[in-house]
């Protein structure tokens, strides 16, 4: 017997949306649930049994010196990257925006140059940085030495390494933020500047504070959240350049999750790290949705 039209339409819907729904459940939601459960166990990859240990994994992460290092390093990294990656991007965007009026060609070329690190393969570029910062044969230290300045050990100095990685992080994200700022600048109606001029704001700085900065507000918030989510994910540079060392001085959350889970096979503990990382990311992404909504309302 032929199925009713309703049944046939539902079958079509299932055929269209079913595979993606199943994949989504199997590859996203079920794993999240499993991670949440595992984080309360002492499960190890390959083990046959596990014990429920409550919040112990979380306690370890926040009390154990190594666990705490990962947390504090990540926070330092993020705290350094956000202001610099945003400030520099804003300065560059303002410069290129003004330049575009007179020399559009030069401005476009420079924009591509600043964006290049975003498109490049980070692991390969990390190796290039490693060569650049090499204590003996690196261009940076050779130049510093030539100038008679001290030549620090960028990637093996415990006090310095996380800042070195942050600098690479800044280098990598300035271009992306710059594009967002440029879009924000392009969206400011020119007559606002004319109005500001009529009102007496004639100097560049005055114009910036009366028009540009307030109008960029929503973009700035959005860029801040995007930069934060990207910074919290830092992994490639750590894995390539330091492996969290020396002595966990550059350990970060995602790298710790990788090391504990997939090198030491402590699935339970790695799950707890994952959950902490996840909670931070959810908070930031929700903030991002909020900001996106706001950005739309402003227009």
């Amino acid at each position: 017997m032929r199925l009713s039209r309703t049944a046939r339409e539902r079958a079509t819907d299932l055929w269209l949306a079913g595979p993606a729904t199943l994949a989504m459940i199997g590859l996203i939601f079920a794993p999240v649930a499993i991670v949440a459960v595992l984080s309360f166990t002492d499960y190890q990859f390959g083990a046959l049994t596990f014990r429920w240990i409550g919040w112990e994994n979380y306690a370890t992460l926040f009390t154990d010196p190594i666990g705490r290092k990962a947390v504090t390093n990540t926070l330092i990294y993020v705290a350094v990257v956000i202001p610099f990656a945003m400030g520099l991007a804003l300065v560059v965007a303002l410069g290129l925006h003004n330049l575009a009026a007179r020399f559009p060609r030069i401005s476009a070329t420079l924009r591509a140059a600043y964006f290049l690190p975003v498109a490049a393969t980070l692991v390969a570029m990390a190796l290039a940085w490693q060569m650049l910062l090499h204590p003996s044969i690196g261009l940076v230290n050779q130049t510093l030495g030539g100038l008679g300045l001290p030549a620090p050990d960028w990637l093996s100095d415990r006090g310095l390494v996380i800042y070195t990685l942050a600098a690479i992080g800044i280098w990598q994200s300035v271009g992306y933020n710059m594009v967002l700022f440029l879009a924000g600048l392009a969206a400011i109606p020119p007559d606002l500047y004319e109005a500001a001029e009529v009102d007496g704001a004639t100097k560049g700085w005055e114009r910036f504070w009366t028009v540009t900065w307030p109008m960029l507000g929503p973009t700035t918030l959005f860029v801040a959240v995007i930069t934060a989510t990207q910074a919290f994910r830092v992994f490639e540079t750590v894995a390539t350049l330091t492996r969290g060392g020396p002595a966990f001085a550059s350990d970060t959350l995602v790298y710790a999750l990788y090391r504990e889970g997939f090198e030491y096979f402590k699935a339970g503990y790695a799950s707890a790290i994952t959950m902490v990382f996840f909670v931070v990311m959810v908070a930031l992404t929700l903030a991002q949705f909020r900001v996106l909504e706001r950005r739309v309302h402003y227009r």
Partner: peptide, 20 residues
């Protein structure tokens, strides 16, 4: 579900997917 899925970075699902 799709919107909720946007909240989940891949790193979060790595351990169970590896297990699977």
């Amino acid at each position: 579900l799709v919107l909720a899925g946007l909240l989940v970075p891949f790193h979060v699902t790595a351990i169970p997917i590896f297990l699977g």
